[in-house]
Each structure stands twice: as structure tokens, then as C-alpha cells.
């Protein structure tokens, strides 16, 4: 049983890590195709993509959209979660359901709906419109995380603050936000990554100022290339870096 367990673990990890390893290894491939045999290593593909202006613009666009849309979703979600946690109203369950609803709808459908609406209104596809779409998908996420983070204990602390004379704004600023800081951080981080990585909404709702996933998509159309490997590896390494930093900072906090 023990041996079987370890064998399974190894097999599973091979399956899970294989594509990433292949991706990274062949980003150093010194030929035109990222397939065996491996030749290299070379950094020329990294040099090429870093010099690619369209790609770098897309990267900046992605960062902006991810940051802004995650922030908006976080603020809206935070306000809604604190508001709904405050008192029990007859409509609470319905409002919660409405706020969560977009989570169960495929991104493609959300994108299509927005595309049609903005078409009718004569609004052209742009980064802004994409940002709006990303808030739509991230708002339920932020709301759900924060709402779940407000347990009985937190509710009582908010109650206590009101009882001691704090206004609603003061309750949010002095008590709710600092108390929910870990959940706020997690929600923002998740929303940021979701937006950063989102393809279909950005694909349908941008035209010239595309985001990184859309730019990578258009790179794919020219077939397999180590340059695409290089972009993918770069995104991967940066993300892993951020995760590790978060892991260690959060870890430090916990042990303190």
C-alpha cells in the first residue's frame, strides 16, 4: 500500500508537471521548433520577446486591467459583504444569490452578452469594456470570499463597534477592513490572477489594445515556436515568484 502510494504520487506529479517542464525546457531551444531533440541552451527567444513591442504593450495592458478590475471588484464585494452581513433582511438570500449568480455562468456567455449590449449602445470594444467584464466575473468571487470570512465572531465585532458609537464608514474603515485584511488580500490576489489570465472576455471585448493572453493566442496561430515557450515560461516564473512571496509573507505573519 505504501509503495503503491508513492508510485501513484510520482505518476501523478509526472502528469501534472510534464507540460510545464517541457514548456520551460524548450524555451531554451536553439532551433526553430520546440520539440525533441533538445538543442541549446540559448536565451535568444527571451531576447526576442522582450524586444517585441506588441507583446510588451499587451503585458502592460494586462497588468492595468487586472489591477483596476480586481480593485473595483474588491471594493464592491467588500461593501456588499459587509452590508449583507449586517442585518438579516427578507431579501438577503435573494441578493446573495444574484451577486453570486455570474459565477455559474460561463465566461463566454458573459462576454457575448456584454459584446451585444455594447454593440447596441455603440460602445466600441476596448480595454475599458474588458475591465468591466472582468469586474463582472470577479465581483462574485470577492463577495463570496469576504462574505464567508465574516463569521459570527466578526459580526459581533462589527456590532460592538456600532454599539460603541462608530458610524457605518468608521465601522468599515477601522474595524471591518483591518479585521478582514487577510481575506481582502486573498480576494484581491485571486481576482487579479483571474483577470490577468482571462482570455475569452478580453478576446471578444478588445480590438487593438489587447491583453497578454489574447496576444499569446495570436502568436499560437503562427504555429509552435520557442518564442511562445519563452513567453509562457516568463508568465509562469513571474506568477510563481508572486505566489512564493505571498506564501512566505503570510507564513511569517502566521508564525508571529
Amino acid at each position: 500500500m505504501r509503495l503503491l502510494s508513492w508510485a501513484y504520487l510520482v505518476a501523478a506529479f509526472t502528469f501534472i508537471l510534464l507540460p510545464v517542464v517541457v514548456l520551460v525546457v524548450f524555451s531554451f531551444q536553439d532551433s526553430r521548433l520546440p520539440v525533441p531533440p533538445f538543442e541549446g541552451p540559448t536565451l535568444k527567444w527571451y531576447a526576442e520577446i522582450l524586444a517585441d513591442r506588441a507583446l510588451m504593450e499587451a503585458l502592460v495592458n494586462s497588468l492595468i486591467v487586472a489591477f483596476v478590475s480586481a480593485l473595483v471588484a474588491l471594493v464592491l464585494g467588500f461593501l456588499a459583504a459587509s452590508g449583507l452581513a449586517r442585518v438579516y433582511l427578507p431579501g438577503t438570500a435573494a441578493m446573495r444569490a444574484l451577486l453570486i449568480a455570474p459565477m455559474t455562468v460561463s465566461y463566454l456567455i458573459i462576454a457575448l452578452g456584454l459584446l451585444q449590449m455594447f454593440n447596441t449602445l455603440g460602445v466600441r470594444p476596448s480595454l475599458w469594456v474588458t475591465g468591466i467584464g472582468h469586474v463582472v466575473i470577479n465581483l462574485p468571487l470577492c463577495f463570496a470570499i469576504l462574505y464567508a470570512a465574516i463569521g459570527e465572531h466578526q459580526k459581533n465585532a462589527l456590532k460592538a463597534a456600532r454599539d460603541l458609537g462608530a458610524s457605518e464608514v468608521q465601522v468599515l474603515w477601522f474595524i471591518a477592513a483591518p479585521m478582514l485584511a487577510p481575506a481582502l488580500g486573498a480576494a484581491f490576489f485571486l481576482a487579479f490572477t483571474f483577470s490577468w489570465d482571462e482570455f475569452i472576455i478580453a478576446f471578444l471585448l478588445t480590438r487593438f489594445d489587447v491583453t497578454l493572453p489574447v496576444e499569446i493566442w495570436s502568436m499560437l496561430r503562427s504555429g509552435l515556436s520557442p518564442a511562445t515557450n519563452a513567453v509562457g515560461s516568463l508568465v509562469f516564473l513571474v506568477s510563481v515568484g508572486i505566489v512564493l512571496v505571498l506564501e512566505f509573507t503570510l507564513f511569517r505573519k502566521k508564525s508571529k
Partner: peptide, 12 residues
């Protein structure tokens, strides 16, 4: 003012 069952002290 109320003293709550779980004290509701502000943890931060």
C-alpha cells in the same frame, strides 16, 4: 453598551 458573549474584541 453591550458586552458580547465572545467579547467581540477587535483582534487587530
Amino acid at each position: 453598551t453591550t458586552m458580547f458573549q465572545d467579547y467581540a474584541l477587535f483582534p487587530h
